[in-house]
Design a protein around this nucleic acid. Structure first.
Length: 110
DNA sequence: AAAGTGACCTATT
DNA sequence: GAATAGGCCACTT
C-alpha cells in the first residue's frame, strides 16, 4: 500500500525539526516554521512537508496553522482538520465559533 | 521534460 | 473584509 511515494528529503526534515520544537499549548504558522528552518518565504514547503508526514510520527503537526489563525483546510479530503482542532483544544487553545484561534495570544515566540 | 498541484504568505486594490 | 496577483519549492503525471 502506498503511504508516500517519495522518501523524505532533507528539506522536509528541516521543517519537521522546527515543528518538533513548538511547545505544547503554542502554535506557529507555516511561514514562521519555514523562516525558522532557514527558508524564508517558503511557507508552502512547510505545508507540503507536513502533508507527507506519517501519522504515527511524534512531530506535533497540529500546532501549525495558517496565517489567519485558522486550521488549514485539506484539499485532498483526508479530513484531519477536525482532529487538529481537537488536539489543539486539548492543549488549552481556545478556538472560536468561526474556527479561529487567537494568534496574538497563542503564537509561539522562540 | 513541461505542466499541474498543493496542510501557504504578503502586498495591493 | 474580500478578491487578485506574484512568489516559492517539491512532488506527480
Amino acid at each position: 500500500m502506498k503511504v508516500r511515494a517519495a522518501p523524505p528529503s532533507s528539506t522536509y526534515r528541516r521543517i519537521w525539526d522546527v515543528v518538533a520544537r513548538i511547545p505544547k499549548g503554542k502554535v506557529a504558522t507555516y511561514g514562521q516554521v519555514a523562516a525558522l528552518a532557514g527558508m524564508p518565504r517558503h511557507a508552502r514547503l512547510a505545508g507540503y512537508a507536513l502533508h507527507a508526514l506519517p501519522l504515527d510520527s511524534r512531530v506535533p503537526w497540529h500546532r501549525v496553522v495558517n496565517a489567519k489563525g485558522e486550521v488549514s483546510p485539506r484539499r485532498d479530503g483526508s479530513g484531519h482538520e477536525h482532529l487538529q482542532r481537537v488536539l489543539l483544544r486539548k492543549e488549552g487553545i481556545r478556538i472560536d465559533r468561526a474556527g479561529r484561534l487567537d494568534l496574538a495570544r497563542s503564537r509561539w515566540r522562540p
